[in-house]
């Protein structure tokens, strides 16, 4: 008998199927719990929990996800390497979320301190009814508003309003770019 390998490990009895078959009661219990938890989040959403509501909703969602992954997707009984792949992915999602949020949350304070703050805020462009990205540093704001005025205004708000410029030169470049585009 030739040696058979699974995930780099030699397998003793390659012809046997090692799949775990869960009893019906497991599946019935899991779907029951999922329905109860769905009802719970639904009911809780009508109560005014304030900032805690996000935490409650996410905790319930994580419990539901764990049930699905462990029992419906068989990760509880499966090859542990699949669990490793799954948890590894979750860790990378955590890094992705963590670092991005940390950057976005701490950048404001840093920019304020160094006076490189360029946060684009929405402001209604009178007459056109469209939000336009406007710098909130007074001198630059006046300059940009003057330019918008000079070119008839009415830029689409979507593409500019949520952006973050990076420093004075960029802001000016942006303003010039806006002016040139019209």
């Amino acid at each position: 008998m030739a040696k058979v390998f699974l995930n780099g490990q030699p397998v003793e009895h390659p012809h046997e199927v090692h799949e775990h078959i869960s009893p019906m009661s497991t599946y019935n219990g899991v779907i029951g719990a999922l329905f109860v938890l769905t009802g719970l989040t639904f009911a809780v959403s009508f109560a005014d929990l304030g900032p805690a509501s996000l935490t409650v909703a996410m905790v319930v969602a994580f419990v539901k996800a764990t049930l699905v992954v462990a029992y419906f997707m068989h990760l509880k009984y499966d090859d542990k390497f699949h669990l490793f792949v799954f948890l590894g992915t979750i860790i990378f999602v955590g890094i992705f979320f963590g670092f991005t949020m940390f950057d976005l949350k701490s950048r404001d304070a840093l920019n304020d301190e160094q006076e490189t703050f360029v946060r684009w805020k929405e402001q209604t462009n009178e007459g056109k009814g469209l939000p336009v990205g406007v710098d909130n540093v007074p001198e630059r704001r006046a300059k940009i508003l003057a330019e918008i005025e000079a070119h008839g205004g009415g830029h689409g708000g979507g593409e500019h309003s949520a952006g973050h410029g990076g420093g004075e030169h960029k802001a000016e470049a942006k303003a010039e770019h806006k002016a040139a585009a019209h």
């Binding site: 058979v4 390998f5 699974l6 397998v11 390659p14 199927v17 799954f86 992915t89 992705f96």
Partner: peptide, 27 residues
């Protein structure tokens, strides 16, 4: 070599694909 090996390979491939799906949705 065996059905067991074929099954394990297909499942590992599926889990790797699901990993890319999770990362896509995470964005």
């Amino acid at each position: 070599d065996t059905m067991g090996q074929q099954t394990a390979s297909a499942k590992l491939g599926m889990w790797l694909f699901l990993a890319t799906e999770i990362l896509m949705f995470s964005g």
